[in-house]
């Protein structure tokens, strides 16, 4: 069982959360010409690192806020959690 620290509610068990995927993926900028390659990279390509991974989680059975988690994909250790607009 993962214990995830929601930036708003504190430490809660995994059952309250839903996963939201890689948080390093950047959507191509709005109001600019976007090449097929940029779309391809944004929609489909993932680094899927073995080790530290920055990812989105959703406190769906709690405050319903999205936030970022830095977690190790091998040990499942959680290093830190951040609000979506925070970088560190």
């Amino acid at each position: 069982m993962l214990h995830i620290k929601c930036p708003h509610c504190g430490l809660r068990s995994q059952n309250e959360f839903a996963y939201g995927g890689d948080a390093t993926v950047k959507r191509p900028e709005l109001n600019k010409e976007v090449s097929d390659k940029e779309w391809d990279t944004f929609v489909y390509l993932r680094k899927s690192p073995r080790g530290k991974h920055l990812e989105f989680w959703h406190h769906i059975s709690g405050c319903r806020q999205w936030f970022k988690v830095e977690r190790d994909t091998v040990t499942h250790e959680i290093f830190k959690t951040l609000k979506p607009n925070e970088d560190n």
Partner: peptide, 11 residues
């Protein structure tokens, strides 16, 4: 969630 752990989680 992304994982290379080769072991599972109870939930």
């Amino acid at each position: 969630y992304n994982s290379y752990a080769q072991r599972g989680n109870l939930p």
